[in-house]
């Protein structure tokens, strides 16, 4: 469906590939194929951690002209995601946002919002409602 292509994409970045894949499975169950979705997890050697290269790849895979919301777990995932976004560069980097939200709940809520055709700003705001103040 071309319509789903216009929905905001979701990227899940965890230190653990199992967590990232599991969160992605939950998103798929909630929203089916309505939302472009990709995940990555693990460091460049396959251990726990994150890889800038893999994050760039996941963002490319979930790319939507409406933008991409990225859910991360711990600090290194955020720092590496910021680096990946800078490497993707202008003009697309302006349409990629890291959500300050818990990774599993945030991914599910963001994807649910995205599946209704909401803007990137709305998707990010919905995910971030889950964050403690």
């Amino acid at each position: 469906m071309n319509a789903s292509k216009a929905n905001v994409g979701i990227v899940i970045v965890s230190h653990s590939p199992l967590v990232a894949q599991g969160a992605a499975d939950m998103v798929r169950q909630m929203v089916g194929d309505e939302v472009p979705l990709a995940w990555c997890g693990g460091d460049p050697a396959g251990g726990l951690g994150t890889s800038v290269e893999a994050i760039v790849g996941a963002i490319e895979q979930a790319w939507s002209p409406s933008g991409v919301a990225v859910l991360v777990d711990l600090g290194g995932a955020e720092t590496n995601s910021e680096m990946a976004i800078e490497m993707i560069g202008e003009p697309r980097m302006d349409r990629i946002r890291i959500c300050n939200a818990p990774i599993v709940e945030g991914a599910v809520m963001a994807a649910t919002e995205a599946s209704g055709g909401s803007s990137l700003e709305e998707v990010v705001a919905t995910a971030e409602e889950l964050s403690p103040l």
């Binding site: 251990g47 890889s51 800038v52 910021e82 680096m83």
Partner: peptide, 13 residues
């Protein structure tokens, strides 16, 4: 940046 795998990669990189 591409090989460290933790936040240290982007920081030292």
């Amino acid at each position: 940046v591409m090989t460290v795998g933790g936040a240290s990669g982007p920081l030292f990189g």
